[in-house]
């Protein structure tokens, strides 16, 4: 019993960290531009297709080269999206336009994927598909890498936002756009950098989920929604909240499979979302988020 709980805990933390990364990505865009980006699960998918579909399967590139190239391409895609779409949407009168805009963008990206890579599933063999047995339980290399990469990424982001000029300027834009402009910060450029960064995070999430699900047009749909849940449950607009919310969801939904059939696993996070929206809509770190 205890081995099983431990096993589920490891899996839960790994999945939770994926949700956290998605939540962080939501938070970045939300804080910098006030946009709820509902296209980002498609950006995750796009990253996975560019990496797995083109660079590894078609072009047979080495993993490190493929990773760097994909990150670069996604960074450019993000900056273009900001310059062409987000910068225009954030200043519109109602948020609804912007939200619908990102929903439509998601459709466009997914149709592009279908045209370019076809509608079939893809499998990348040899990418994080080992399983190690330590003592009595199994742990996959995917889970280990997810946990390590997520922790590293969060640490890097923390340093970036605390100690670099660009990172600090992004925090200024997030906290007060008017004052940021008065300080001489170019808001549109800052949003471009944020969006590029978040598209690159999407690519990283794409790399990490390839071993968990086949590459397909809908591979990131549930992950995207759960990332949104983790933001709400942890406290929206607050990065530590997204991390806490993501890990919480991941662990709870995996431990829940002890009591309920595994097919209902996905329902758990949405149930949690509803419960939190009813009882504590600010999320469990929400108070601190508001006091910022």
């Amino acid at each position: 019993m205890s081995t099983m709980v431990f096993q589920l805990l490891i899996t839960g933390i790994a999945y939770g960290m994926i949700y956290s990364l998605v939540g962080i990505e939501y938070t970045l865009i939300w804080n910098s531009s006030g946009l709820l980006n509902f296209s980002h699960d498609k950006l995750i998918t796009l990253g996975a297709y560019i990496f797995g579909g083109s660079m590894i399967i078609k072009m047979n590139l080495d993993n490190p080269i493929a990773i760097v190239l994909t990150l670069a391409i996604m960074g450019v895609v993000g900056a273009l999206l900001a310059a062409g779409i987000f910068n225009r949407l954030y200043s519109m009168r109602s948020n609804i336009f912007a939200i619908i805009g990102t929903v439509v963008l998601a459709k466009i990206i997914s149709e592009f994927i279908r045209l370019f890579w076809g509608s079939g599933n893809m499998r990348v063999s040899g990418w994080l598909d080992k399983t190690y047995f330590i003592g009595g339980f199994a742990i996959t290399s995917a889970n280990i890498v997810i946990i390590i990469v997520a922790i590293l990424l969060v640490a890097v982001l923390e340093v970036f936002f605390k100690f670099t000029k660009t990172g600090k300027a992004m925090r200024c834009v997030e906290q007060n756009k008017k004052a940021a402009a008065l300080m001489g910060i170019n808001i549109n450029r800052s949003i471009c950098i944020t969006t590029a960064l978040s598209a690159m995070i999407c690519a990283v999430i794409g790399f990490l989920v390839i071993p968990l699900v086949n590459i397909s047009a809908t591979m990131a749909t549930t992950i995207g929604l759960k990332g949104f849940c983790s933001g709400v449950i942890g406290g929206f607009g607050y990065i530590p909240g997204a991390i806490a919310g993501g890990i919480f969801i991941g662990v709870v939904e995996n431990l829940a499979t002890i009591f309920i059939p595994a097919v209902y696993k996905d329902a758990v996070s949405f149930l949690l979302l509803i419960v939190f929206l009813l009882i504590k809509p600010t999320g469990f770190l929400g108070k601190r988020a508001q006091g910022r």
Binding site: K165, K168, A169, R171, C172, Q175, N176, K178, A179, A180, L182, M183, G184, I185, R292
Partner: peptide
């Protein structure tokens, strides 16, 4: 600006640093 518009989540020191951004 009217209403101060400081960066509320940043420390006093960080706010001052941002003043010299440009």
């Amino acid at each position: 600006p009217e209403g101060r518009e400081v960066f509320p989540g940043m420390t006093v020191l960080e706010n001052l640093e941002m003043g010299s951004y440009s």
